[in-house]
């Protein structure tokens, strides 16, 4: 009964056998915001180099502590806990000492391991040369649990893949193969997006939809439009946010992944002008609207 990112709400395998993937996972949409870092976090990281370096240091510690598990989901969950913890009130908004960040990282990995691999021992987690005693880790775990309000069944983009994929009406001879490729590519992409602070502001469902769209544009470009329409029709998906996130993934891909990682720059500024060249052009056009005081909303529309 270990915790699966794909089924955060399911306690047992009770419903997984006859899971009706295409029913709207309403509870997920309703609670996903509870599993995101608070909204100011993204802005703070963008403006504060010391907080960004806290995060980068902690993520590399998490990667180190969780390496032996060889379980990307476990690492992903730990980083989700980390982001939520760092954005909580319990965390002073200043540069932190490395040992503090290591202790936080270790606790996040320990909690994630308890969700994913219950037989793990905390003692196995530590790296040679550093020792936090068990009581210290326990206390830190407790602080993290309190800050996260014990919401450890994180709703992540992975939780939405099945539902979105079920909306894809594939006309291939072997749709299951294509669906499988879509899911596995979107899974890899989502793992990578987690480190990029640009994507911290998007809801898990938006990232899931955008990642699937991005991969569908490569795997089955002819069906892209249809997928995109289907996802946008879903009441709980904000079309603008979805297309903005999709665009960000495209840009990240165009710039090159290495260069982009850890970058706090957004590439939105190239889209600053509002232009409409609808007509013969097959390209997508972008309209921007300053609908939100804190940030610009962009949306892409195909003509």
């Amino acid at each position: 009964m270990e915790f699966h990112l794909e089924h955060p709400l399911s306690h047992s395998s009770l419903h997984n056998d006859d899971a009706d993937d295409n029913t709207l996972p309403l509870p997920l949409f309703l609670v996903e915001f509870q599993h995101m870092p608070s909204s100011h976090y993204f802005l703070t990281l963008k403006s504060s180099a010391s907080l960004l370096s806290n995060r980068n240091f902690a993520i590399s510690s998490i990667t180190q502590y969780s390496r032996k598990f060889d379980d990307p989901s476990l690492t992903y969950l730990a980083v989700n806990y980390l982001d939520r913890f760092l954005s909580s009130e319990d965390m002073p908004q200043q540069q932190s000492k490395h040992w503090v960040l290591k202790l936080i990282s270790l606790s996040c990995v320990s909690l994630s391991a308890k969700m994913r691999k219950p037989e793990t021992s905390v003692c196995d987690l530590q790296v040679e040369g550093e020792m936090f005693d068990a009581q210290t880790i326990e206390r830190m775990e407790n602080v993290v649990l309190g800050a996260l309000k014990w919401r450890m069944r994180s709703v992540t983009p992975f939780s939405f893949f099945s539902f979105f994929i079920s909306l894809f009406d594939l006309k291939e001879e072997d749709p299951s193969l294509l669906k499988h490729s879509l899911r596995s590519q979107a899974t890899d992409l989502t793992f990578n997006l987690q480190h990029d602070i640009k994507f911290l502001e998007y809801k898990p469902s938006v990232i899931a939809g955008a990642a699937l769209l991005f991969n569908s544009s490569e795997l089955c470009p002819l069906q892209f439009q249809c997928f995109s329409n289907r996802i946008c029709q879903c009441t709980y998906v904000n079309k603008e946010e979805l297309m903005e996130c999709y665009k960000a993934i495209q840009e990240r891909d165009a710039i090159g992944v290495e260069e982009n990682e850890g970058s706090s720059e957004t590439a939105v500024n190239v889209l600053d002008h509002q232009f409409s060249s609808c007509g013969e052009s097959e390209k997508s056009i972008t309209i921007t609207a300053a609908s939100s005081p804190k940030r610009r909303k962009t949306s892409t529309r195909r003509c």
Partner: peptide, 16 residues
């Protein structure tokens, strides 16, 4: 080992 995994998983479920 700190908080037991079963307690952790069950309480987080109760929370949901």
């Amino acid at each position: 080992e700190g908080i037991p995994p079963t307690a952790l998983r069950e309480i987080s479920l109760l929370q949901m």
